[in-house]
Amino acid sequence: MEDSQTENQLDESRDVQELGEDPQAKDELSKGPGPVSRRSFVLGVGGIAVLGGLGGLRFVPHGSLVRPPGGQDEDRVIAACFRCERCYEICPRGVIAPAHIEDGILAMRTPTFDFSNDYCDWCQESKGGEPLCVKACPTLALELPAGATPENTILGKAVLNTDWCLAYRLIGCRYCYDACPYEAMGLDSTGRPYVIDDKCNGCGACESVCVSLKNGSIALGATERAIVIRPLDAVQGGESPHA
């Protein structure tokens, strides 16, 4: 820190010298130092330009994300979330995760879901059905409309990839069917699971138990689990999240 300080001071002296050599600056000095030095002005305007450039990210389309309860109004999340990270810190099941830079610079560090180990039960277990993330959000970026329930708040929709699903190789796997808390999965005549879209709210229980990736040798080339939660608009083309 001492270094930087010295550097600071050297810099100041350099500035004064530079100013002294510049006729225009001399003029300014003779008038008495103004409230804003030229370098401050350049740095300040430069900084504002950078902020403006970053602000332009707002108009770069980014892929939609599965948001925690109360985050279904994407504009609201982007506007009010200031990346304080409280929601994913407090999530008792550890399913809320920061969105990655791969999801878009704008979305980076905003909350999304990671269903690899667990699913969102609206804090039924730990809080009796009042999502802690909504409660923890200090800026109302996550806010549930009145009368919101797990059934009518659609976080996303489960999508089953039959190429990767073990059951579609007649292995008889039905973990996702058994895990679904909302009876949003059915079994066809040969015991293969399918998603009942109308009942699925995207809680992630199916994705969290899917074992297809662990059997990569069977489902060759799979890059993700055979059943995953997709954002609503990716599945249905932007239908209202609150049915």
Binding site: V36, S37, V42, L43, G44, I48, L51, G52
Partner: peptide
Amino acid sequence: EKLDSRHFILGG
């Protein structure tokens, strides 16, 4: 009174 670049950034 003195404004410096920080205040510009604050405004920005």
